[in-house]
Deep mutational scan, measured.
Amino acid sequence: DELEKRVKKIARKLNLSLDQVEEWLKRNNNDELVEAVKRLKKK
């Protein structure tokens, strides 16, 4: 979905793993995208 695409884009842009992106999003209080990261990690 759109949020998952955004997460992947962030990960690529910042050259981070999904775990690192998740931490980064949590620090930025971006719950919506944190949920998207969790969905991606399950895939």
Rank of each mutant, 00 (worst) to 15 (best):
N29R: 09
V37I: 11
R6M: 15
D31N: 13
L16N: 01
K42E: 13
V37P: 02
K42P: 03
L33R: 01
K42C: 15
L14F: 14
Q20D: 09
K8Q: 13
L16Y: 09
E35C: 08
L33K: 01
L3Q: 11
E32F: 08
L18H: 01
R6A: 15
V37L: 10
E23D: 11
W24E: 01
V21P: 00
L33A: 02
L40W: 07
W24Q: 00
L3R: 06
V37W: 04
W24F: 11
K26P: 00
S17E: 03
Q20H: 04
N29I: 05
N28I: 12
K8G: 06
N15H: 13
N30T: 04
A11S: 05
K43G: 06
E4N: 05
L33P: 01
L40I: 10
L3F: 10
E32A: 13
N30L: 15
L33S: 01
R27P: 01
L40D: 02
E4P: 03
L40F: 04
I10N: 00
K42T: 08
K26Y: 06
V21C: 05
K9F: 15
V7P: 00
E4L: 06
E2W: 14
D31T: 14
W24R: 02
W24T: 00
R39D: 03
R12N: 12
E32I: 11
K26H: 09
R39N: 08
N15Y: 07
D1V: 08
K43A: 08
L3S: 07
N29H: 13
L40H: 03
K5G: 08
K38L: 07
L18Q: 02
L14K: 04
K42F: 06
N30F: 15
D31I: 14
W24Y: 14
R27Y: 10
N28W: 13
K38E: 06
L25A: 15
K13W: 13
R6P: 00
N30H: 15
K5P: 01
N15V: 04
L3D: 11
L14D: 00
E22F: 08
L25C: 14
W24H: 04
R6N: 05
S17K: 06
L14P: 00
E4M: 09
N29S: 11
K8V: 14
E4A: 06
K26W: 05
E23K: 09
N29V: 07
V21M: 14
R39G: 06
R12W: 13
N30I: 15
E4K: 04
A11L: 14
A11H: 01
N30K: 15
I10D: 00
R39S: 07
E22M: 11
K43V: 06
L14A: 02
E2A: 12
I10K: 01
L16D: 00
Q20W: 05
R6C: 09
R39Q: 08
E22P: 02
V7R: 02
V7W: 04
K38V: 08
E35H: 06
R27E: 10
K9M: 14
D19P: 04
K41P: 02
K41T: 03
L16M: 15
L16T: 02
K5N: 13
N28D: 06
K26A: 11
E4H: 03
E22L: 12
L18M: 05
A36N: 01
E35R: 06
V34N: 04
W24I: 10
L16V: 06
L18A: 02
N29P: 05
V37H: 02
N28Q: 12
Q20V: 05
K26T: 10
L18P: 04
L33F: 03
L16C: 04
R12Y: 13
D31S: 13
Q20T: 03
D1N: 11
K38Q: 12
E32T: 08
R6H: 09
K9L: 14
K8N: 08
V37D: 02
L18Y: 08
D19Q: 08
V7C: 02
L40A: 03
R39M: 07
Q20F: 04
K13C: 14
L40Y: 04
A11W: 10
R39L: 06
K5F: 12
E2V: 12
A36D: 02
V7K: 03
W24S: 00
D31V: 13
L18C: 08
N28P: 01
D31L: 14
V37K: 01
R6L: 15
E23C: 10
L40M: 08
E4G: 03
I10Q: 01
E4T: 05
E32Q: 11
E2R: 11
K5S: 12
D1H: 12
K38F: 00
L25P: 00
K5V: 12
V37C: 13
D19S: 08
K42V: 10
R12A: 14
D19A: 12
K9A: 15
V34H: 06
A11G: 02
N30S: 09
E22T: 04
V34F: 07
S17D: 10
K42I: 09
E35T: 05
V37R: 01
Q20N: 04
R6K: 12
I10G: 00
K26M: 10
E4W: 08
E32D: 12
N28T: 13
R39P: 02
K38C: 10
L14M: 11
K38S: 04
K38R: 14
R27L: 13
L18W: 10
R6Q: 14
L25Q: 00
V34Y: 10
D31E: 13
A11R: 05
I10E: 01
A36P: 00
E35P: 03
K41Y: 05
W24C: 08
A36I: 08
S17Q: 05
R12V: 10
L25H: 00
K41M: 08
K41W: 05
S17H: 05
R6V: 15
K42A: 14
E2N: 09
N30Y: 15
N28G: 13
L18E: 03
L33Q: 03
E23A: 12
E35S: 06
E32R: 09
E22D: 04
R12P: 00
L16G: 01
I10Y: 04
R12L: 13
R6Y: 14
K42Q: 14
E32Y: 09
K9H: 14
L16F: 10
K41L: 12
L3I: 06
E2S: 11
E2K: 12
E2F: 11
